[in-house]
Design a protein around this nucleic acid. Structure first.
Lengths: 241, 241
DNA sequence: CGTGAACCTCAACTAGCGGTTGAAGGTTGT
DNA sequence: ACAACCTTCAACCGCTAGTTGAGGTTCACG
């Protein structure tokens, strides 16, 4: 019934977008228009049907988010996407130029984050404290709770560490301390475990391309996890409002 | 020719703006247009000539900066100006380097983003199954595990339900069943609890604007939670790859 | 007092953006 | 076989952010 969620026809792609942005009334014509403008380039079947990959879907979601949340014109969004294509990302607002910026810039189900394997960011402890805008003390606690860590076998931190530290810093401003955040770590670990469970058999298969399919699966699972999580939190918060 | 610098005629105002934004080619017609749109309200002399105060000039400069730097549409800029009139801070003005800004919460646009999705989507069970592309059976399980539910006191589902159901459907394609997803629910609940903890005291305060500040806090916390979670998952997955 | 620059209003016009629509036709799944 | 789904292409649309011009008033200076 449900195929590998990977390469969607325009209709399926549209259904996905509508599910994620239910109040936006996105039409086929819009998705095609975005292609005409050079913002997405889905592959085509031999007969000419569009096929949207996970990456294409990420781009579409990014476009819609940027339009809605930041009112950016398409040509600016295109520049961002192009910039993200060749190397690192650049989106929202320039900061200190010395420090690499981190993607997961807003509440996006941050799929693009999972692609950024290329960003071999290496940051010293001092830089981390500075760019994340946190105190030494907070960093120590974050490390104690296993939320932030140096790369295995290194004394340096990576891009994830920056995002985590930054978020933790802002949460601290609300009175949430690292010990409150332990649950996040646990939840994340559990999800990673789930992903492992799914991927292990794929990876073990002796078929050709098993490795690639495993990586693809990891990406999709990660994106889905984050999306599911975000929706559940949002749903749960309805009761708080 | 020489006047008190305070209240400029439109010609003098224009000269000022052109000096500050030499490459913007601002015309009288534009300044008048901005007034017609309610973004500035210069006083008038008895004969009807416009007189721009220092404050009016600041507003004009702000408008031009926002257009150039953030591509904001006039109606959004107007909202910002109105908000600033009622004592709030300039939403998108250059942030202090020490305190990082939360993107999702950057003033009315961000607020709208989260609020917008509370649109009153009402979907029947049949529609949910169809748009999420899942089976009846899966939906039953999702409900049994508390992942998807109708709105309290209603027989209909909302936008969150669609996103959740869809994600669950795609995860099911990977062999992950609702029972595997229970942990997501638990994690989300824990985060909601945390948010509640932070927000409750804000809300209880009898100060003016407490309600608004509480909502603002919820949005920020939600964004931070999702961000933190995503980064932790991504970080955790590094070991799987 | 006259004249010209600077100002006024109001209506009509416009360019560009971000799509939408419809017609005519090809492809695919059951 | 036939519906559901997909394709292209050109024409059309509504909105934003102004611009332009006609016709008239006010101000500053000689």
């Amino acid at each position: 019934m449900r195929q590998s969620a990977a390469r969607k026809t325009i209709g399926q792609a549209l259904a996905d977008l509508r599910a994620e942005f239910p109040d936006a009334d996105i039409k086929e014509s819009k998705v095609r228009f975005l292609e005409a403008e050079g913002l997405v380039e889905p592959e085509r079947t031999p007969s000419g049907y569009r096929k949207y990959s996970t990456r294409d879907m990420e781009r579409l979601r990014y476009i819609i988010r940027m339009q809605r949340e930041h009112y950016l014109p398409l040509k600016v969004i295109k520049e961002h996407l192009d910039a993200m294509d060749r190397g690192l990302e650049a989106p929202l607002e320039g900061g200190s130029p010395t420090v690499p910026r981190v993607v997961l810039a807003d509440g996006s189900p941050g799929a693009e984050a999972f692609r950024a394997e290329r960003s071999d960011v290496r940051i010293s402890r001092r830089e981390l404290v500075k760019t994340a805008g946190i105190t030494e003390e907070l960093l120590e606690q974050l490390e104690a709770y296993g939320l932030v860590h140096t790369r295995t076998g290194s004394k340096h931190y990576d891009a994830d560490a920056v995002v985590i530290a930054k978020a933790a810093g802002e949460l601290a401003a609300f009175g949430l301390e690292p010990r409150h955040l332990r649950a996040f770590r646990t939840a994340a670990d559990r999800e990673v475990g789930l992903v492992e469970q799914v991927v292990a058999p794929i990876r073990r298969s002796r078929e050709e391309g098993a490795r690639g399919r495993a990586d693809q699966a990891i990406e999709e699972l990660a994106a889905l996890s984050v999306r599911l999580h975000a929706a559940l939190v949002k749903d749960g918060l309805r009761s708080v409002r």
